[in-house]
Design a binder for these strands. Structure first.
Lengths: 222, 222, 222, 222
DNA sequence: AATGAATGAGGATTCATTCAT
DNA sequence: AATGAATGAATCCTCATTCAT
């Protein structure tokens, strides 16, 4: 039972002979490759040998920079949460009309999964092991508060303007929006089998996108 | 990195010396234990040794009845889909008013995850490996059509009666409902860390349940 | 590293439902299949499961009739030696002119390997394990004396008639004749690779046959 | 059914604690031990665990240096063919009179099997599996051409000088010479049982040797 | 900083054989 | 006579990690 092998990494492959004692580069290359490996194969399925091979570094370097497979995996999780948060940060929702801001957030969330399911895969792995590793992070928690605060602001503004119904909780809404986007992608392979359809086709995806935006706005409007 | 071990299986433990040559029983016991193992540890993380120990059978029997770890895992997937489908079947939504029927379906979906996250865990594993194994099943696909047909019937009835807005697609709605319930549970561990809250507490869960039912009905009403 | 699988046995396949409690038939079928299995895969490579499957009998029957894998293997060896001896017996060399008799024996030996390499394969296996099993037979030894006696008679007659040179030992000659035929077939696969030729082609075989007969007669003539 | 165990390897035993990180040495030791194991037990009968134990290396090293049991076995085959070829090379037959050269080649072939039956045993195994592994070698084929060319030269010279009869084919003669020596050793255990004699006794062996040389020369002389 | 060699504890799977009917 | 269930000891191979340089 072997996963489809990830292709050799072009970005990583390049500076083979040139590079010598490039601390930051080596570390970054390990992290990049490890992110893909853990996302594609899960924690147990990812092999340190493969990561070393694909990163074109000596296996010993993994331990030099990250101490253990688990620590490397945690570094991957933290990096990926960082990226997600800073992408949200760049959204700049405050300047939009409340309903437009929500629509944009839904689209942003949905599209982020269209581009890349790395985050979803890592979270699947981490939840299967009950967040055992993520719990050990001292950087990750409260990382998501800004987006909840932003949504809270939008809701309040919308209620004030009469465009959004009162009584909505920002955290619940965030979970709902994320979930309604997330599930389609997190389960896209089994859904494709069960419904005997290829859910990855662009038109299926854009149909889904339209439904999600419409549905969320419906549920939120005054 | 070892998962918290599943507790020894009481059901399985009982008839140690009494049982002899109980074909159906042995098979069933393997399947039960394997379901929990694969759900708790994923495909790679589950160990045939552990399954054999916990099922209190000789390891060789796994191969006698299921040929390989992968086939055993597929049998688990099929069994679990079967159960899900027959639970849906018992719902008997047709007799209710359209909006009530939808509410009941949402509650049923949500509650099924409250009781048992086995299905969620297995799907997480299976999606991480791109449904590689599920694809090989010749029993699973189209298994879910009945529920889509049922929802379609509800939507049509609701539109006729003027209680449900027109233009909704049954499959999209099913994905939305399932997703809005599913994500909360599939990601409950990482969410708990990120938001520094215990999302498993009963009052958090029932708050979430109320929100979901309310939100779906809002999105559906005429 | 899996051997080319032997095809399902038509002879054995037939009387599936008809046969019931056919002691001699069951035993014979096991022996037939086992002969092929041991010849094709060696002692270690032959699997009792496969033998049972191909003989279409319950695995337990092997133990019923033959006690163990090793005993079954010994029965195969004995049967195969029996057949070889009785084929030699039918040769009836005494009535021919000494040189013709030798020529005929060479051809017979050579042709017996063309038809069937079962014997060669079994002997290869048995010699690799230093005749450990054959030693345990109380039927096999001295089985080959008749042919040596026959050759001895031929040599003496030929010397008397002046057609065969004196000083030849019957046993040495038997080994030489057998060896000169045997080696070509026992090593036909590696020879084919080493010399990059297909030694199994009919014309290659008949060229070899002519050489062998010619060479032996040359070595023997007065 | 366990083969007589090979005695612990003195050569390998020595530098237990001293040796550290000796790449070439480790590889060579594995290859040596594996050669004996495969020769004594065949491919299926040889156990990687035993090889590791006897080579006094960690089992993992076998896979480090040779990737798999089959690759290790192929390396053994190639090494053994290499040795055979270079021994032939050292023979330097060209300087001798044609008949003496052939006599010497026969004696050399015979004696090589007296010293060591490793090669015979490995070929027995490999032929039983139809040269499946040897076929995969890209180094082995055409390895034996030099000796055929040498014999061809001898035959031509002998014919020219009138000491060797015309019409002999070098390849056929090589097969005949090899076979006439080989069979006695490849089947020495079963022959000993069948003829109830110990064919390994020195005087039996030298009697055989004299016969073979005499017989080949007879078959070749003008 | 970087490397290749080395390790020990598993991991899935196979196998000849025996048990209970 | 015949069967399917059950067993325990191997067997090849893998993996995260450490050693020596």
């Amino acid at each position: 039972m072997r996963e489809d092998d990830v292709k050799p990494d072009e970005a990583a492959a390049a500076p083979r002979l040139v590079r010598k004692r490039d601390s930051a580069g080596t570390r970054a290359r390990i992290l990049n490759v490890a992110t893909r490996e853990f996302a594609n194969k899960g924690f147990e399925g990812a092999k340190t040998d493969d990561i070393a091979d694909r990163a074109r570094i000596n296996k010993r370097m993994i331990y030099h920079y990250f101490s253990s497979k688990e620590q490397l995996y945690l570094a991957v999780l933290e990096a990926v949460y960082d990226q997600a948060r800073s992408a949200e940060h760049r959204l700049d929702l405050e300047r939009l009309e409340p309903l437009d801001a929500l629509a944009r957030f839904v689209e942003f969330t949905f599209d982020s999964f269209v581009r890349d399911r790395t985050f979803i895969n890592l979270l699947a792995t981490e939840n299967r092991q009950r967040a055992k590793v993520l719990k050990k992070s001292d950087r990750v928690n409260t990382m998501n508060s800004p987006i909840i605060a932003a949504i809270d602001g939008i809701l309040k503004a919308g209620v004030d303007k009469g465009t959004i119904r009162p009584g909505l909780d920002a955290l619940q809404l965030w979970i709902t929006i994320t979930g309604v986007c997330y599930f389609f992608f997190s389960n896209i392979y089994t859904l494709s089998v069960i419904f005997d359809t290829d859910f990855e086709k662009p038109d299926v995806i854009s149909e889904r996108r339209a439904h999600v935006v419409d549905f969320v706005l419906r549920g939120v409007k005054a």
